[in-house]
Nucleic acid binder design. Structure first.
Lengths: 310, 310
DNA sequence: GCAGGGGCATAGGCCCAGTCTATGGACGCA
DNA sequence: TGCGTCCATAGACTGGGCCTATGCCCCTGC
């Protein structure tokens, strides 16, 4: 289902956020390098299109209405996601500018790196990043070969020759669709049960599947059941689980949104450690400087994300 | 800073997602009710604008390139946020259609309800929701008065005359900027320390501030220090903390993105329960039916979100 | 080997959405 | 009362985007 027309262009919402911040339509117009009548027309067009009064206009400026504040809060999320998309795109772009080569595993590149790059931008004027992705082995090889100044890997092993620091923790999560018999097991399932169940799975050799196999070897003697269905993308797996094909195991980062929405249900697994470390790596015996140093620091300080303490 | 032009229009990215899902540009064009040449031009324009090859075009269809898959993953997040914005807007809209009146506290309305409404949409054909917001007392009053069929409240009290079920847990979170002396206290601070520190705070009477005062009364004898600065919006508080004005206490839902990016640091508080329940309420002795029943079920099943077990 | 079909790109023409400049009205303040 | 600030309206212009029509490529099946 395509995105509704009224939200597909975020620029009017972005303008609304500027009005909220700056206090007047004219000031927001200047911030966006358009004229005041254009901004005024865009905003009244937005209100008309949505059927909601967003602004209280006075001779001393404009403020958000109650509904407008709520719309602005929702819009801030969407605009933020678009900004993350933009920094990601910038890092992927092949140009001739001097850029710092960085390699990252797919999980990190997809869910974490854009936010770190956004945090990096103000500090390193113009210094941007050239991103390449691969599995953790590819990343380690790229850093060792000097093709990347910094790498982000997942999994239990720290490759030889590299210095590593933990920047986060990723938890493999058992998911089922609402109504599945496991969904009511608040106390969780056992490692044996999990191993004995055919799952919707990634193809053999994927990092997630390897991590699950390794974790289960430590938790049960039972061999992992053959997959119910093999799919090549996280998205396809989520769709299959939601349609009731069967349970699956995915990264907690990949399913956070669906869990919050309640379209997928998380099933705890008792007495089984399903976490894996996400690490930043760089060549051993070689101090980090400049942009890579800053980026590593940003990544490291966000490591408290999954702290269990409340 | 305005959103970069290349990401402000999400429709081309949305089209890209359809190509990824359906396997061909023509099929995606049909799904979006545009012609194939239009879709083709939009996509090649997108690739030109980004400077990244997104699609492998063959005579048997089109597939994402490696970079294209990453861009599509990032874009999915942005398009999802825009879709959440859309369902929120729909629920806010004043029209004459028959709609189910629902009231929600601001925290729930801002961070959770759009996702629940999105999950509701496919099940209840056309049956939509008319949302009003307020503090928890307002919501309870609206439900008791029959102005809302369902309400979402936060805080420890279940109002008399209402039946309640927990749908989530919100944790008040102490945040500081990176580099603050508390940021290195991995073991956390004490309730006494927190009470003795002047904070950047919401205005007196806000739900978050009241919840903090109540929690501290249970954890320490020390009275809460007067605020360092009072601001009226969560966003303004986050900005002040990031600029180093001082620590603040906000809902974990409000700061999740900043914590993930590392622009704000979370400080644990030892031996102090800072969680509060989020509940769905409806008139006691009156069974839920129809859309309110479905919506309540969706909200309830997402309650495992904050489960500490890993 | 050849015809047919699915898939994509290009060409050309049309139309409307969005932008600008110029101006006027409302409100608050000195 | 007069001025400054802020916003809305009017009118003209431009260009981006969409459509139809068409051509090329590649695979497949007869």
């Amino acid at each position: 289902m395509p995105l509704p027309h009224r939200v597909s262009d975020l620029s009017a919402f972005d303008l609304l956020l500027s009005v909220a911040e700056l206090g007047s339509i004219g000031a927001a117009a200047r911030a966006h390098a358009i004229t005041q009548p254009t901004a005024s027309a865009r905003l009244s067009g937005l209100e008309r299109g949505l059927g909601i009064a967003l602004l209280d206009r006075t001779a001393r400026g404009s403020r958000l209405t109650r509904d407008g504040a709520l719309v602005a809060d929702w819009a801030r999320t969407a605009v933020g996601a678009a900004a993350a998309l933009d920094v990601g795109i910038t890092s992927l772009r092949r140009t001739r500018e001097s850029r710092v080569p960085v390699a990252a595993s797919l999980t990190v590149a997809e869910y974490l790196l854009p936010h770190w790059l956004a945090a990096l931008r103000p500090s390193a004027e113009g210094a941007s990043v050239a991103l390449t992705t691969g599995n953790s082995d590819d990343v380690a090889a790229a850093v060792l070969a000097g093709e990347a100044r910094l790498g982000f890997v997942e999994g239990p092993d720290v490759p030889a020759g590299l210095t590593a620091a933990t920047v986060g923790r990723d938890t493999l999560t058992v998911i089922v669709r609402p109504g599945h018999r496991w969904a009511r097991r608040r106390s969780g399932i056992t490692a044996d049960e999990l191993a004995a169940t055919a799952l919707v799975s990634r193809e053999r050799g994927s990092g997630t599947r390897r991590a699950l196999e390794r974790a289960l070897r430590r938790g049960t003697d039972r061999p992992l059941e053959e997959p119910l269905l093999e799919l090549s993308s996280t998205t396809a797996i989520k769709a299959a689980v939601a349609e009731g094909v069967g349970p699956a195991v995915l990264s907690s980062l990949a399913v956070a949104a669906e869990l919050a929405a309640g379209t997928l249900i998380r099933v705890p697994v008792v007495a089984l450690d399903l976490t894996r470390e996400l690490r930043v790596v760089h060549p051993a015996g070689q101090a980090l400087t400049g942009t890579p140093r800053t980026l590593a620091a940003i990544a490291r300080r966000s490591a408290s994300l999954d702290d269990p303490a409340g």
